[in-house]
């Protein structure tokens, strides 16, 4: 039997055939199928992002005119409007820190409660906890606005039952941002619960059985087996919620549309104000690029500290 050139056998060179044409002939249809999503991504994401970056260096006007202004828009982003963008950065960082932490813990806690249940109940609770994710964010914000109403709100009604004074949840600048945070924390982190629940379900039972033989209790098992083995999911959820928290907009916009001083200003409400109320497209783009850099930096740090090589 003659020796066989494995390379040639797996990738036979056919004299006279252009390899590019050959590749297209063999795989061309595959690219047709991914083309729509690639086009959508290019048109609605990639090009706008590149365009925003370009605009951030221009005195942009939608109908033409304007010109290049260097880093002026970045300077203006931080120094004009009485420096409110800096305040927005602080507010957003505080919002992100609290809500991401709370959402991760609540997600883990609820997923852990679901885990011991039978498959049927697990399905039920996963579906129930996922409801907020399929409910309009506007509806949720409007509902919370009503709950927080000083005169007619449900929370103050509850306080009145114990004789407490009504709280100006959304009209006191000292607590308005905390009220918005509270509404986020008390809205079940749907994606977190479902993802953690799925991750916990995929942890091999052998580990728990071995731990039980060694005398480990439920908390010890949770801490030493569950948490380390779902670390990759935790990383994903942390990054997901961090991005969402830094992009908080509709909740603030619906709950306190006129603001509460500047105490509820966030990065995206500032971007919205710059572009849609003041028509400062260049400054808004600069603020958006700053947001992009912040999120990218934090994501890199999170990947650095939460990445895991554990596989099972």
């Amino acid at each position: 039997m003659a020796d066989v050139d494995i390379t040639k056998a797996s990738n036979p060179a056919r004299p006279g055939v252009n390899p590019i044409q050959d590749f297209i002939r063999k795989y061309g249809w595959s690219y047709v199928f991914v083309l729509p999503s690639m086009l959508a991504f290019t048109v609605f994401t990639l090009i706008p992002v590149i365009w925003a970056f370009i605009i951030s260096f221009q005195d942009f006007r939608p109908r033409g005119g304007g010109g290049w202004v260097g880093f002026q828009n970045y300077t203006d982003a931080f120094t004009t409007q009485n420096g409110v963008f800096v305040e927005a950065l602080k507010n957003t960082a505080f919002y992100a820190l609290v809500t991401v932490t709370a959402n991760i813990f609540i997600g883990l806690f609820l997923a852990s409660l679901i885990q011991p249940l039978s498959a049927r109940f697990q399905t039920f609770f996963r579906a129930a906890y996922y409801l907020p994710a399929v409910t309009s964010a506007v509806i949720i914000a409007v509902t919370w606005r009503w709950l927080f109403n000083t005169q007619w709100g449900f929370l103050n009604f509850l306080l009145s039952l114990v004789g407490a004074e009504p709280v100006r949840w959304l009209s006191d600048p000292d607590i308005a941002l905390q009220s918005v945070i509270l509404s986020t924390v008390f809205t079940i982190p749907a994606a977190g619960v479902v993802l953690f629940s799925a991750a916990m379900g995929s942890v091999p039972k052998d580990f728990y059985e071995a731990a039980e033989l060694e005398g480990a209790g439920p908390i010890r098992k949770w801490w030493s087996i569950t948490l380390p083995l779902i670390k990759s999911t935790t990383l994903y959820v942390v990054v997901l919620y961090t991005i969402a928290s830094f992009e908080v907009f509709e909740k603030v916009y619906i709950m306190v549309p006129s603001g509460v001083g500047n105490s509820t200003q966030t990065i995206v409400t500032q971007i919205y104000q710059s572009v849609f109320q003041q028509f400062r497209y260049g400054v808004a783009s600069a603020q958006a690029i700053v947001l992009f850099v912040i999120i990218a930096t934090i994501a890199v740090v999170q990947f650095r500290f939460l990445k895991t090589d554990v596989e099972y």
Binding site: Q81, N82, S171, G259, G261, Q277
Partner: peptide
């Protein structure tokens, strides 16, 4: 004007909330 009014607005609110005196609110911007 679109920028001027957003400079004045939060200060009016802060005066009403008692976080700024009227003088601070109106002179600051």
């Amino acid at each position: 004007w679109t920028q001027i009014r957003t400079l004045i607005h939060p200060n009016l609110q802060n005066a009403v909330f008692g976080k700024m005196t009227p003088e601070q609110a109106l002179s600051q911007p």
